[in-house]
Every structure is written in C-alpha cells, then in structure tokens.
Design a protein around this nucleic acid. Structure first.
Lengths: 201, 201, 201, 201
DNA sequence: CTTTAAGCGAGACGGTACGTCATGTCTTACG
DNA sequence: CGTAAGACATGACGTACCGTCTCGCTTAAAG
C-alpha cells in the first residue's frame, strides 16, 4: 500500500521558492528505490528518474546522497516515544523490541544504507554521529526514570549503557540478524539489570 | 615502515597457476589505498593501477570488492588472543581496549569498509555475519572462564553478552568515535558486572 | 575605460514598459563577457548574472542568443565611412585596414561569435546574410567612385569584388589571423587592380 | 544511400588496441547526425547513442567535439585534385565550382559546423587554421603552374590570391549562399585575371 | 621436447552514475 | 504589466569505475 503521489499534473516551478511537491516526490522515489533495490540501486540519477525531477533540483536541496538518505529515514521514522511502564526492565525490553521491530519493517534497509554511506562520506559520518549520540542521550531517559524511582543505581551515566544496547541492535542490523527472539532480549536485559558477577546476587 | 613489495622485476605469468607475487602486490596495494584514502578511494581500478596488475587478474581471484576487503582484513589481523588474568573484569576491559586499539591503528578503516561493502553485497554480508558470530562465540571464552571459576553467574549464555560489548565497539567504529576513554570502558564493564538494579547490590 | 553602468540603484520595473536601464545593463554585460571570455563563456545565464537581470527579462526582448549578439555588434559598430582619397587603390587598402583593425580591437570577437551562432540558428543566419550583403553593396561605393572617375573599368559589378575582399577578411577573422601585414594587403590590392594575367600589362 | 554499418554483431574490445569497427561506427553516426540535424543536434552524447558506443570511447580518441568534426570532414572529403587544363582561368573557375559544389552536397554542413566550433574552442581554431593555411598553399599550385607557363605574372605570391578566392567561398558558405551562378564565378575570375584598373588594358 | 593451457600485464570496450552547467519556462513578490 | 529572483524539468558536459573482452607474452605441466 504505497502512498506514492501519482498525480498526473506536471510539476514545475512555483516561483523563487522550494516546491513541496518536488520534495515529496523525490523523497517518495528515494524511499521506494531503497525498499525495492537497496543501497545498490540507489543513485541520484535513479531517484531523479523515478521522481521525474531534475538532478540539479536534488542537488540543490540535498548536498549528498547521505543527506537524502537521512531525510528519508527521518521522514518515515516519525516521533519516537519510550515506553514508561514504571518497570525499567520492561521499558528496556520494549525499547529493544521497538527498535528491532521498526528496522524489520523497511526502516532497517534505509538505516543500514545510511551507515554504509557514512563510511565513505565524511559529512554523512558527522550527521550519523550526531544522530546516534542524540538518540542514545534521549533514550537514556528510560534509565534516568528508573534512577529517579530508585529502581536503578544512581551512580551510572545512562548514556554509555544505552550505547551498549543500541550497539547490539546495530550489530544485528548490519549482519542481517534482526530476527532476535524475545528470549534473547530478555537474557540481555536481565544480565544488564542483574549483573554478571555471582557476588552481586 | 611498510612492507610494500617494491621489486623492480616485471611480474608476469609463472605458468598455469596463481602467481603469489601478484597476489601479494594486490593485497599490499589494496591495504595501502584503504589506509590512505579510505573506502572512497578504494576501487578495483585503483588497486590494479597501484599494484601494476591487470584488472582481470583481480577479478579472477576475488569475485567482488568485498572479497578483496575481507582478504586484506584477515591478512593483517593475525591471531587473536584473549587475556586471561584470572579476573573477568580485567579480561573484559582488556578485550575492549585491544579491539578499539587495533581499530584505531589501521584495522578500523579496513573493517568499517567491509561493513559498508556488506550492506550492498549479499555474499559479503554472509561472510561478515559468519565472521561476527564466530568472533563473538570465541570471545565468549572470557566469560566462560569466569563461569568455570565461579566468578561469573552460570545461568548466562556468554555469546549475547559479548555481542553487547562488540556491538558497542561497532557503534563507536561506525560513528568515528574510537577514542574511548579508559573511564568509559570501566563504567561499562562495571555496570555489566555489577548490574544496574539497585536491589542487585 | 569601459563605460559600464555601475549604478548602485536597484533596477526594477518602471511600469508596463521596457526599462532602458535594463536594456543597457544587459548589452553592457553581454559585450564585456564576449570581450573577456569569448563565445565560450557567453551564455544567457552569464549575461543575466552580470547584468543583475532576470533571465526572463532577456528572453522577453531577445528571442535568441544570436539576436543579443547582433544587438551588441550593431550598438558598438556605429557608422561606417569609406575613405575617398581619389585613388581607388588607396581606398581599397584603407578599407581592408579599417575592417581588420576594427576586428582586432574587440569588434572581431563579437562578430566571429555572431557568425558561429548563425551556423546553428536559421534566424541568425538570415540576419547575418542580410547584413553581409548590405555591407558588400554599400562598400561597393569605393569601386563605383573609381568607375565614375574612369580610373576603374566600368564593365564590372562592384559587389562580387567586394565580396572577394571581405571574404578574405572573414577567412582571417575566423582562423585567428587578423595580424595582416601592410605588405600582404598591398599585394592583394595590387593583384586585384593590376590583374594576374601577364598579357594584361 | 547511406553506407551505415548496421551489423548486428555486438562490438567489443579486441584487446589493448583501437577497435576500427567502433571508430567507423562513431564517424558514421557523427556524419549522419550532422547531416540530419546540423550542428544543433550534434553532441557527443547523441553520437555515442547512435553509434552504440560508450562516451569514454569517443573521448579516448577525439579530445574535443571539433576533433571529431574534423575527422568526419576529412574522411568524406577524400583527396583533392586541382584541374590542370593548361588555362589558368579555366582552372580557377573549376576550383571554385568544385569547392562550392562539394559544399552544396553535404560537405558544407559539416565544414560550417567546424568553423562554428572553432570559434569557441581554441584547439579547434588551431586545427582549422592549419587546415586552411595548408589548403590555400596547396591550391596555390594552380597559379604556380600558370606562372611556370608564363601565363601568369611571376611577381606574385600565389597564396594570398588563393585566400581571396577561398575567402569568397567561406563567405558564401557561412551566409548560406552557396548557389553561385557560373556567371558570378566567371566575373570574379575575369576581374582577378584581367585586373580592375582601366590602365591595365 | 614439444604442444597446450592457463596466468599475466595491458588496455579498449559498452555502460552507468557522477556532479555541474546552461537551456528556456514558470511563478512569485514587488513596484 | 514589467521587473529581479530563482526554482523547475531537461539534457549535455567530461570523468571515473564498472565488469568483460581480447591481445601478446610467459611458463609450467601434459602428452
């Protein structure tokens, strides 16, 4: 059920300002190509062809392939909420399942394309880094809430822990192993919450 | 002091068999290019040019860019040993520092290129997955030893935990943040060993 | 000292009529670009940029690149006078030297651009043809005066002869050999006046 | 009756050497495009498309559009012979009629394209100049023969005179007036041979 | 002791995509 | 309605690599 904008009307300039119809068409096209052919088939030419847009129009608004990828990703990701059940363990499990689940349905193909692009494009790398850091910081709220409740030890910076968890997900995404069983997730969260040391019991 | 094979002698066929001199020259060239220009400058053409090899010679032995990258990585990685100090905490810290340290010195540039290549090459993805899984399994020995010593709880499968840790490293590698302070590493290992839950103390 | 109109005042519409300031600015810009970069750098975009005019303003008044070129040429050529010393030989030499001299100083760059443009623009070709024919006809006055004086044979139509001479100049212009020595000009005029045949002496 | 090579066989490399089939196909395509659409439709892309050749193949062998044009011109012009009837007047008339006649049948379209291209491409200008100079020098043989026979005055350099005549032809070509009547040609040659001066009778 | 068969370097081939530029048309906002 | 501004779709530019090919050679193994 693609939401492609298949209006017959010919798109053209609407004056000295960005044409939202073109922007939409380009992002739609980019998303579709990515979904259908992956990063391999993703080229500015192909996007322009499919969107019936001129290459300069794309380059005008997106300086690099990676910039376009990021826009596609952001657009289809929408807002992110972190479950707040009052139980940190459950919240962490929900976090992991939500992330892996989203990646399993289209989002993953796009995000791994972004990561790949960032490995040969310094600007994309910076964008990706900023995104990743921000993401880990904001998801840290799950642990911060636990700390506020006294449920979680207060002598930890939540951020590196969230890096641990999202790193796990990245690893799975990038090696094509997104089908993580609920059991595995529980194992990880349990280990993290309870600690590995036998003396910590 | 690079070990580049700068022999003046003109390389040619040595009969109906693979010429090791060519193989070496190609892998050397590939490694150098990767080190100097990163994945962006890495192309079969460039490798052939630098190695003074014919393109078909490369294609004959390495079916894809990713296959060549993997060979380069394996060649320069050598054997991996996991410290065994009798203290799991120290062993984990050493593991993380060794991995990040190796990536900081050349290895990282190559490995992130491999990850990127794998995102658009199914065969490379399989190779990467196999490598990653094997790696996590073998590094699990650190925890297994702890379990054998009774230092670490025995009701855990070590593998997902090592995925957690290596995932953290992947994340840092792929976002260009390999400069991890010893403090951060300690924090992570401490959290993992001690557990986050305030009741686990 | 170029007479470029560098007025700071912002040019804008002066109502529902052609703005002469814009016209001047555009012609100035076109002339300067042609002088500085030749036909290669001459584009409607470049002219608009330099004249600080909108592209549609140019397209409104000059239907094609060639039309603009012709306007530039006409504007800077001014009236043409043909020397009348009473000696046809001298008048012809003066004619050739004046034409080549004018082309050597800016005019040539523009005119050869016009000729080039006319080769792929039918309208420009017609304009160029009309101009060339008119020019040869009017310069024919040099020979007509000689005929009136009895100095030149009367059984010739002056026009083809002037085509011969101006054709020589075109050839030199279009092959970048405008530096014609006075001796060469004399040779040509002498040959033409005296005839090549040894029996005509 | 186009001599297009319409072989179905797929053209490919024949080793580390120029493929004559490709060269022929490219020149054929270029010539056809020029004949059909003139300089306006002549682009490297269009030639490549029509010749079913890669753009780099064209750029490999012809550094510029003008180089390709010149090759096309030379190929279809073949050898040039200058009539030798023993009568200089007749030889000159034949020379003019042959040149104008050749230009009337395809050759002209190509040559005026070359002239146009040379006006914005310095390298093409040099090539054109060399060609024009060589051509005038070699056609000077017509007058030189007359001088040897004693039919033509010996105190003239033939070259500038031939420039006069070919200049006339260029003028006609570039203004689209190749339909020169035999009478006009006779007039010009007569004037040149007999001289304009009334005292030269 | 020859064939023969494969590997080698070289590099040309038809392609595709790159990122930039100019084209001529369009709409805006302003005067 | 004319203007400056500039976005738009289009398409050519010249370059870099892609993966395939054929060449002319070298050399070890097979006959």
């Amino acid at each position: 059920m693609t939401k492609t904008s298949m209006d017959i009307t010919k798109r053209t300039s609407i004056g000295a300002q960005r044409n939202p119809a073109s922007e939409t068409a380009i992002l739609d096209a980019a998303e579709e190509i990515l979904r259908e052919s992956g990063l391999g088939g993703f080229s500015i030419e192909a996007v322009a062809r499919r969107a019936k847009a001129g290459k300069p129009t794309i380059y005008r608004w997106w300086p690099s392939k990676a910039a376009l990828l990021l826009d596609v990703y952001h657009r289809q990701k929408g807002e992110t909420f972190y479950a707040d059940t009052g139980d940190t363990r459950k919240d962490l499990v929900a976090f992991l399942e939500a992330l892996l689940g989203f990646w399993r349905t289209n989002g993953g193909e796009i995000f791994r394309s972004i990561i790949a692009a960032a490995q040969s494009d310094p600007e994309a790398l910076i964008a990706l880094r900023d995104y990743a850091v921000t993401r880990c910081r904001s998801s840290g709220v799950i642990l911060a809430r636990g700390q506020a409740r006294g449920e979680v030890r207060g002598d930890f910076d939540p951020e590196p822990i969230m890096e641990l968890l999202s790193g796990f997900c990245w690893n799975r995404l990038l090696t094509g192993r997104l089908e993580v069983s609920p059991g595995e997730i529980e194992t990880i969260v349990d280990a993290l919450m309870g600690g590995l040391s036998s003396t910590s019991r």
